[in-house]
């Protein structure tokens, strides 16, 4: 069962010379964890926000974004409200920026359910206490204020709030980036538990490749508004088929790399004011040839692995090189 299905999503913004999202295809099944990785400006947050139609001003969209079978881009106000309160929910990076510091935690958790008349105030309270328990927090937090909680606790409150409407899809945009590494592990455990218990599909947006490898079933790698590579996470991290994915992995300092120089990617991602011809990564790519600057590469599957695709003219060459090393 497909919880989220994005097909050919194109998003244009006023003042940008090219689409900010350019033909994005992405899907999340029920009970599946999918990571969307990329650097700032790649369009990964914009993609996840489009799922709730939280679009910047003046944005024009093409394509389809279906959540549980309904196209988000053509919804009316009432349907959209139902989508945002009951079908899909989002957990943001900074819990302190997403919560009113002057209202009690209990108010915050039950507000949406009460205002949308999904349940009575008493039922909402009961549900909120249940969810606090599910995220490992005690019921007396209901009467506390956000300022009295640590960042890790508050992020768990945000996750509990996201689950109030029993969403089919949870969008998590860098939910652990603001947390310490040891609390990150706790939040990740929590998300995995909830996915198992409620069958929620999870789209995890992150810039952290190690984290994506550790928690996700499948991965999408974005660059300049396009999905450049996707596949099962073991396969992507062990045998990247796109030079950008390989370069990202090489430039991440890890515990296994010895002291010394990292393999940096020279240059900058393409500017939005610039039109793109051919492959967006070509100017920074060590494998680029003439065809890369003229013709946009289509996604092709790895031999014997139909689910692992990369949009690169030289994907097979890269795979052969990796095999030789």
């Amino acid at each position: 069962m497909t919880t989220l299905d994005i097909r050919g999503l194109r998003l244009r913004l006023p003042g940008a010379a090219r689409p900010v999202l350019d033909g994005v295809d992405l899907s999340v099944d029920a009970s599946e964890t999918v990571a969307l990785v990329g650097e700032s400006g790649s369009g990964k947050s914009l993609t996840s926000r489009t799922v709730l139609r939280l679009l910047p001003k003046g944005a024009a969209t093409e394509g389809r974004v279906e959540v549980a079978g309904d196209d988000v881009l053509t919804m009316n106000a009432k349907q959209l409200r139902k989508l945002r309160t009951q079908t899909a929910a989002m957990v943001f990076q900074d819990p302190r920026a997403a919560i009113n510091p002057l209202r009690r935690i209990g108010d915050f958790l039950t507000e949406s359910a009460r205002l949308n008349k999904l349940m009575t105030a008493a039922e909402a309270d009961t549900r909120a206490v249940e969810l606090l328990d599910a995220v490992g927090l005690s019921a007396d937090l209901m009467r506390r204020y956000p300022g009295q909680l640590s960042g890790g606790m508050l992020q768990r409150v945000m996750i509990a709030a996201a689950l109030m409407g029993d969403p089919r899809l949870l969008l998590a945009d860098e939910p652990t980036t603001a947390l310490d590494v040891t609390s990150q592990a706790e939040v990740v455990t929590l998300l995995a538990d909830l996915r198992e218990r409620f069958g929620t599909g999870l789209l995890f947006v992150t810039h952290d490749l190690g984290l994506a490898a550790a928690i996700s079933d499948r991965v999408y790698v974005m660059y300049a508004g396009r999905i450049v590579e996707t596949g099962p996470s073991e396969s992507i991290f062990a045998r990247p088929r796109h030079p950008y994915t390989r370069a990202l992995l090489a430039s991440t300092p890890s515990l296994d790399t010895p002291q010394g120089r990292l393999t940096a990617i020279d240059g900058q991602p393409p500017d939005l004011r610039q039109e793109l011809h051919g492959c967006p990564f070509a100017p920074r790519c060590p494998l680029a040839t003439e065809v890369c600057t003229t013709e946009a590469p289509q996604s092709t599957s790895a031999p014997g692995e139909p689910a692992h695709t990369a949009a690169c003219h030289h994907a097979d060459r890269l795979a052969r090189e990796a095999a030789d090393v």
Partner: peptide, 19 residues
């Protein structure tokens, strides 16, 4: 701290318990 660094085959549950 070292165990908390995410990597393939990572066990976040064990980290929570150790913490």
């Amino acid at each position: 701290l070292l165990a908390s660094v995410p990597r393939p085959g990572w066990d976040p549950r064990a980290i929570g318990a150790a913490r």
